[in-house]
Amino acid sequence: MTRLAPTFAALKSDNRAGFVAYVMAGDPDADTTLKMMQGLADKGADVLELGVPFTDPMADGPTIQRAAIRALESGMTLKGVLALVKRFRETHKDTPVVLMGYANPFFAYGFEKFASDAAAAGADGVICVDIPPEEDTEFRSALDANGLSFVRLAAPTTDDKRLPQVVAHTSGFVYYVSTTGVTGAGSGATGDIEAAVARVRAASGLPVAVGFGVKTPERAQEIGKVADTVVVGSAIVEELATKGVDQALHLAGTLADAAHSAR
């Protein structure tokens, strides 16, 4: 049982849209990321997505690509990411943390060892961009064995025939990629998103988070009307890179308020 289920249960009973905030671990250094994580939780983020930097982020746009480069240049490693989660847990016991990254760093660390160390550090789940259901047996069993949620991505191209397979072993929530494209590009039409969220919710029985291209409080509010949770990544990462921690947290606060007051 991770922190995700009670978090989403509480949101549901309040009839509130949730807010998931993304930050890249180590961008530009570990201490700043810790400050960001604490600040995001305090500003109302219901779930934190902590990016695991990778040299070749094939599904990310320029903003997250640059963040990954800065993180790697600061010496961030997967081990360092887990240390950050542990430090965050010293002050924040309840905010769920989901690690988001690409297969190779997890594979290099060893799926088993990673899952066990991540659980021990206080992580709640993992999103892995490039491990589709067809390839997930080993990774999924490692996460399962250690009580971590495997949060899957569903996309506009995921049709009804494929959807059940995609959500079959998902737990915690399902991340719906609102548009075909890379992170930060621009979100799809709200009407399409509403229909897709309903489809994914019906197939999975889980809360549906919608992200990719949500940048403004107005857009967060629109998405919050139709989705269980709004995810914002690139906008916060960009604000942090150009204006610093305080401004990035301020933006996150307005996004959180917008999502929370959407309904």
Binding site: A103, P132, E135, R152, L153, T157, D159, V166, V177
Partner: peptide, 19 residues
């Protein structure tokens, strides 16, 4: 499954999987 022994496979983002 597109495997040559333990190698190969289909490690792509969900958006591309149907393609």
């Amino acid at each position: 499954e597109g495997r040559f022994g333990q190698f190969g496979g289909r490690y792509v983002a969900e958006t591309l999987m149907p393609n």
